[in-house]
Design a protein around this nucleic acid. Structure first.
Length: 576
RNA sequence: GACCUGGUAGCUCAGUUGGUAGAGCACCUCCCUUUUAAGGAGGUGGUCCUGGGUUCGAGCCCCAGCCCGGUCACCA
């Protein structure tokens, strides 16, 4: 983008950056390419050495990584090298890496021209220092990439206590690359995230379930109730929406004859952002033919137990202040039972008027647009949800709030649906899927009525999806698991931003321009008319307020267009 | 969207009824061959988020705005 390029061109360098650019130039003058093109072949990784130290001791290794700290002591130095696998100390001795008289590689390149953050390669032998620290004695040093910006300096003391941590949330999210370099725990979070998704894939693939991809750009944003992002396709000249869910597409595939399909889907919802909501987020949805929601509950227990073990090595977890166990089985509580337990009211079979009465009594706010489903959802959400810390299936939701769910086998007012609650939050949502096309059309029409009544979350009708159901979909159970939320639980993070590499942020403000502003131009013209001029006279001529005067004069002196001279006769300003 | 915190050096942070902008680390110069939050001596470095205002004088007070975070509201 043009504006960004302009910003870079007009960027004012800090003294630290200028020094590094000068070092870069000097490296080139010494005939060292600071960005060499050749492959750099390493023989092992830091983690390998640390975890098999006896095997490596005395042997030669070649490593590459970022220099994270440096302690120079005359003719010898220690530095910390960090590669993708870990950190370890390297020992650099002048006479080991240099044979020439001037010892250029040590005295000039290592001591003067390299900086913290530079990427280097080393060849040397593994040894242990007198103090017992595992290290590599460097015999050869190669510059692999010069770093032009100083990294934050984060130090860890002998007790493992971190000093001057790079902790500003805004900087960490905007410059995640820096966060990943200096904050090791951040990297661990994201490695764990991949372990979790890998664990889920393994679980499904072993069962022969098929991983698929379905459209993100959808003409009708179906499968959930949420405000979509809208975009436009130029060639077709039609609106398209970023998907809010992929449910209806996966069910079409079940119609098409796949027994089990799943997708890790980025979904998009144009709604508020907070600690647990990002406009784009990841949901794993799975559909399995010939199963029901009871089967799905059993599978979910098994899956989560495995995910906990694969990612953390245990089913027992600390989430915030709570101890949570993912050991199966999990209790199954009908939603109306939960409401009875936590409010004292049995709302089974109540109509909307009676429900509003109950809401009023227990202090839950309601409005006219709310139907039975929404009222029950509201009661559960504000009075019950937060009580379910241990994994608990809340089951048998009312029909009104579940337009894609099959009617309950014993009670036609309810549906075969469950939500899995963990730590007081929803983690998964699953149904015995509605496969009766005639009833599905009726449910959609009920949603349309809700929408006309003012419910802006009611679902859109997808005619093609109904057509697919009319060809016949086997009885099927489906589930959606919020992956970001699952990762939050498994890594004990309370903010979704901590488990997304690049959480959504408002743009940074523009870098200051080197262009003169209008006030500065005016002042410079005045100055050019009479130069040198007594400072106070120029101030009076400008007519600027004190603050504006001060800022503007500082502005043009900073650009080196004018300077102030102190003489016996007073302060004079002149053009340079 | 509402309310509350905060925004000062590359990083982490101080900053006194409003009176010339500070510390630690980093950086620069010098000393130092198994150190480790290495150490010792000296030094450089600032759009105090932005724009107005009050004042002889604003990092600090007032007004408007921007950005992060938190709480609530909204929301699968």
């Amino acid at each position: 983008m043009q504006s960004i390029n302009l910003n870079y061109n007009s960027m004012q360098l800090t003294p630290l950056e200028i020094i590094r650019r000068e070092s870069l130039q000097k490296l080139r003058e010494l005939g060292i390419n600071p960005y060499p093109p050749e492959e750099f072949k390493t023989t092992t990784s830091i983690k390998q050495i640390i975890s098999n130290f006896e095997e490596f001791e005395g042997k030669e290794v070649i490593l590459a990584g970022r220099m994270m700290s440096r302690r120079i002591m005359g003719k010898a130095s220690f530095a910390e090298l960090k590669d993708a696998s870990g950190r370890m100390q390297i020992y650099i001795n002048r006479d080991e890496i240099c044979s020439d008289e001037e010892a250029v590689m040590y005295n000039t390149v290592f001591k003067k021209l390299l900086d913290m953050g530079d990427i280097i390669g080393i060849r040397g032998t593994v040894f242990k220092t007198n103090v017992g620290e595992e290290s590599v004695k460097v015999k050869e040093l190669t510059v692999l990439s010069k770093s032009l910006r100083p990294l934050p300096v984060v130090k860890t003391d002998a007790d493992g206590k971190i000093h001057d941590a790079f902790s500003d949330a805004e900087l960490r999210y905007r410059q995640r690359y820096v966060d990943l370099i200096v904050n090791d725990t951040v990297k661990e979070t994201f490695i764990k995230r991949t372990k979790i998704t890998t664990s889920i894939r393994e679980f499904f693939n072993e069962r022969g379930y098929l991983e698929v991809e379905t459209p993100i750009l959808q003409p009708i944003p179906g499968g959930a109730a949420a405000r979509p992002f809208k975009t436009h396709h130029n060639a077709l000249d039609m609106p398209l929406y970023l998907r809010i869910a992929n449910e209806l597409y996966l069910k079409r595939l079940i119609v098409g004859g796949f027994d089990a399909v799943y997708e890790f889907a980025k979904d998009f919802r144009n709604e508020g952002m907070d600690r647990t909501h990002n406009p784009e987020f990841t949901v794993m949805e799975l559909y399995v033919a010939y199963k029901d929601y009871n089967w799905m509950m059993n599978m979910t227990e098994e899956l989560l137990e495995k995910v906990a073990l694969d990612s953390n090595g245990t089913t027992e977890m600390k989430i915030g202040k709570n101890d949570v166990s993912f050991k199966a089985p999990y209790p199954r509580v009908p939603i109306l039972e939960a409401i009875r337990i936590h409010t004292g009211f049995d709302v089974a079979g109540m109509n909307d008027i009676q429900l509003k009465e109950v809401c009023k009594k227990v202090g839950v706010e309601v409005d006219e647009t709310m139907g039975v489903g929404k009222l029950i959802d509201e009661l559960f959400g504000s009075k019950c949800e937060h009580h379910y810390i241990q994994p608990t299936f809340i089951i048998d939701y009312p029909k009104e709030m579940s337009p894609l769910t099959k009617k309950h086998r014993t009670n036609p007012d309810l549906t075969e649906r469950f939500e899995l609650m963990v730590n007081g939050k929803e983690l998964a949502n699953a149904y015995s899927e509605l496969n009766d096309p005639i009833e599905q059309r009726e449910r959609f029409e009920d949603q349309l009525k809700l929408s006309e009544k003012g419910d802006d979350e009611a679902m859109f009708i997808d005619q093609d999806f109904i057509r697919a159901l009319e060809y016949g979909m086997p009885p099927t159970s489906g589930i959606g698991i919020g992956i970001d939320r699952l990762v939050m639980f498994m890594t004990n993070n309370s903010s979704i931003q901590e488990v997304l590499f690049f959480p959504q942020m408002k743009p940074e403000k523009k870098a200051p321009s080197v262009e003169l502003n209008d006030d500065e131009k005016v002042l410079l013209e005045l100055l050019k008319a009479t130069t040198p001029i007594l400072l106070n006279n120029l101030k009076i001529k400008s007519g600027f307020s004190n603050k504006k005067w001060d800022k503007t004069l500082k502005g043009i002196t900073k650009h080196n267009l004018a300077k102030v001279n102190a003489t016996d006769a007073g302060l004079f300003v002149e053009v340079v």
